[in-house]
Structure formats: structure tokens, C-alpha cells
Lab assay of single mutants.
Amino acid sequence: MASQGTKRSYEQMETDGERQNATEIRASVGKMIDGIGRFYIQMCTELKLSDYEGRLIQNSLTIERMVLSAFDERRNKYLEEHPSAGKDPKKTGGPIYKRVDRKWMRELVLYDKEEIRRIWRQANNGDDATAGLTHMMIWHSNLNDTTYQRTRALVRTGMDPRMCSLMQGSTLPRRSGAAGAAVKGVGTMVMELIRMIKRGINDRNFWRGENGRKTRSAYERMCNILKGKFQTAAQRAMMDQVRESRNPGNAEIEDLIFLARSALILRGSVAHKSCLPACVYGPAVASGYDFEKEGYSLVGIDPFKLLQNSQVYSLIRPNENPAHKSQLVWMACNSAAFEDLRVLSFIRGTKVSPRGKLSTRGVQIASNENMDAMESSTLELRSRYWAIRTRSGGNTNQQRASAGQISVQPAFSVQRNLPFDKPTIMAAFTGNTEGRTSDMRAEIIRMMEGAKPEEMSFQGRGVFELSDERAANPIVPSFDMSNEGSYFFGDNAEEYDN
């Protein structure tokens, strides 16, 4: 993207840094990872977990959730003011799984939030270390993106479920800051804005008074975040219109849905970061690795190297396929839920299948599930090659597409044709070009129609051997075009429920 120079890199967003050079960025990201790792080690000690239990991804998720809940100030305040039966607002906890007599047992633990905050700050040299908290939120978000298709949420806001490739980060909490905003897809931002506008339509006082002023500035800020994701002048001009509207209503909703559809071809720039579970960072720190000293990046080879040398386990339900569970977590670790499966298959070195073909449910185990038949197995999170994460949407291309997802959002900077089903997408653009945004709409449609099938995206960008740390010898991959490109292809993934 041309304006790259004016933006802070995501590592800076990730670490609240002012302008830093590459070495400083690597050190501050490393410091953040160190903090998460030290916190995780301490929690495993508190909970008396064995090494194996500490490497269980379900335990990692519970521990991450506990610290996120302990620092969720708004919710904590709300819980104190609106006490609900049987919930102690000062405590947080969740299921911890232990191996007892050759069987997995679930144990519900409860801790004072104050105590968890103390352990977290102690692991982070006394700081609140917001960057580390956001990092864990993005890992949870990436896992949700890989596990669930947001059909219901899309339909509720009037969008087409086939636009799911635009929904990265749709389950990120509001408090995820600049680093969170960077990884949100165009569809996620559109959905947040539509929800806001709908509230304004239904509630006369939404934009009024002292609160209304705050609401208005939040609305304009979200519009600017979305505008910054678009790469064409016409899309940005249309966002200006939406932002400046005196009284946002149905016309703005129409414009936003139009823009979301246009992003299936004229893709937005959305950041991709490899955020790993805390149970990967903990053992690495415990083994003596100093992330701050060595430096770390979320968008280069580092996460690949770390996963190459990590042992992570997962509980497996009786009829689940461990290899499929591994694929789910591998995609989440690489922030690749909406990437082209052919690119992923090449990088991973084994075939990556669409969601609907995987015999696996989510990673988390519900409290009512029976533990008797639970097994555990090693997650295979290694890769054959590594590639640089991208934040450009890439230019655009036609490809055989599917009944489910009709476009992709690249996660890796790797040369390819970008699949999208042009006739299906263009069919949504018939007729409606009147109104105050008509010239911009016409211009956007013209650009979409001009998108050429034979153009290559990320020209000359390749993948790298894991021994090639400096990215000196790019390998331009070859793809098996007979395979499906979309992950949520004609899909039956479970729906995400809060």
C-alpha cells in the first residue's frame, strides 16, 4: 500500500510504541512475548500442572481467558453494579484439565481477579502490559475465525453469508486497541457500523446529549479505520460520505453494504499476525530463551520457528480426527482463516481442507461434555516452508469459486491468482447506482469489472525454506488448481455463540 510509510507498523501498534527502528520493534515485541511466557509459567505453578498438562491447549485457553477477564475493567465495573446470582464479580476462573488415573478430569478453578492481575503485572515488570493482553485477544479471535462461520451475524446486519472472507476479527472485544483495529476485516468494521446506525434509528437519543457526542466521535473513528483499509480513492470518498452524514440511517447502511461487497474484489488491507497460545510461549521462556534479547516478529519467520520446536497437546472428542484438529489450530496460529487453501497447503506441506470436510468441533470443551471418553493427542503445528504475512489485500483475480465463501483475504505475501467468483459478486451490483453516491458507485463498479483474471497478485513473492531466515531465496510455489480455494466452501461450520 502506498501510504505504508505514514502508518505505524503493526509491531508498533502491538507494543504501543512511538516510531521505533526494526531492532527496537523486535525487542519490544519480544518483551511482550516474554511477559506472556513468564505469566503462563507462574500460572502453571499456581495450578500445580504437570509439564504435559501445561502444554494442553484447553488449559492455555482457560488461563488466557482468566487474565483477560481480570483486566476487563468495563465488564468488571458492570458486574459490580449489576450483581447477578451466583456470579462473584471479583473472581474469575474456568475449567482446568488434569490427568488422573490414566483419565482426563475437569476441575473448575476460581481465583481472585486481583490475584491474577498481581501475577500478570509481576510477570511483566510491574506494568499492565496491555500489548500482551491484546495479543491474547487476537489469538482467540484468530481461533474463532478458523472455527466458526459468522453466517447468522452477517444475515442479521443485512449482509450476504458468502462475504465471510471479510469477517476477520469479528469476535475481537471493543477494547483491543490499535492492534485489534489493524486485524479487523472490512466486513467486521461494516458490521460494527451498521449495528451502531441501527441503534440510532431505533433509539432517538442515541446521537443526542453528552453521551451522543461520545457516540458520534466513536462512529467517526470507526469510519476512519474502515476508510484506511480501502485502497481505492472511490471507496475512500464513499467512506467520507458515510462519516460526514448528519443523521446516519438506511442510506448509510446501503452504502456500507455496497462497500463491503466491493471489497470482495477491490480488497481492503487487513493486517495478519501470528499470535500463538500462551502454552507455546511459556515452555520456550522456561527453556531459557530470551525473546527480548533475541527479538521477535509476528509477521516473519519467528512464529514458524517457534511452532517448529513446540509440543502442544489437545483434548480430542471420541469421533474427532486429531489431524483435522491440528489443521484448525495451525490455521489459527498463522492467522489464515480466509487465505486461499492452495497457498496454505503449499506452505504447510500437507493438504489443507475446507472447514466442512474437517471432523472436528471447536477447541474448547463445553462444561456439560462427558470427560470419560476424552483422549488427548499432539497437535501437528509444523510447516514445510515459511512466508511473510501481508497486510495488503493483493490485486484481484477471477477463479472458480464456491457456493460458500466467494473470495479470499490473503494472509501471506505469496504470488498467486486470487480466487473470487466474479459473476456471483457482480450480480449483486445491478441497477442500484442512484442517489448521492452514484458517481462513486459507478466508478467502483467500473474498477471491479476491469479486474483481470490473468493478473498475478504479489508478483514474484515466494515462500522460503525454514533454514532461509533472511528470506534470501524465494520459492514461487505451484498450486494444484483442481483443489478448492475457499475454506468455508459450501460450508456447515458451527455458528459462533458468545
Rank of each mutant, 00 (worst) to 15 (best):
A2D: 10
M13H: 03
Q20T: 03
N21V: 15
T23D: 02
A27S: 03
A27D: 09
A27P: 09
G30C: 07
I33L: 00
Y52G: 02
E53D: 15
R55P: 03
R55A: 03
N59A: 12
S60A: 00
R65V: 03
R65W: 10
A85F: 13
P95F: 07
K98S: 08
M105C: 01
K113P: 01
R117I: 15
R118Q: 03
Q122P: 07
N124S: 13
N125D: 13
H140L: 07
D145N: 15
Q149W: 15
R150F: 09
T157G: 14
M167I: 08
T171G: 13
T171D: 10
G180S: 03
A182M: 12
V186G: 15
V186D: 06
T188F: 13
I197Y: 13
K198W: 10
G200K: 13
I201F: 12
N202K: 13
D203Y: 05
R204A: 02
N205A: 06
R208P: 04
K214V: 02
Y219H: 06
R221W: 12
Q241G: 08
A263C: 03
C275H: 10
L276M: 09
S287P: 10
S287F: 10
Y289S: 02
S314N: 08
P318D: 05
P318T: 01
K325W: 11
M331S: 15
A332E: 05
S335R: 01
R348W: 08
G349Y: 10
L358D: 11
T360N: 03
N368G: 00
N370T: 09
W386Y: 08
N397A: 00
Q398H: 15
A401W: 03
Q405V: 07
S407H: 07
Q415P: 02
L418D: 10
P419Q: 05
I425P: 08
M426F: 00
A427R: 01
F429P: 03
F429W: 09
E434C: 00
S438G: 15
R441A: 15
A442K: 03
K452E: 13
M456N: 05
Q459M: 02
D468F: 10
D468W: 10
D468S: 05
A471T: 04
V476T: 01
D480F: 03
D480Q: 03
M481S: 14
D491T: 02
N492H: 03
N498F: 00
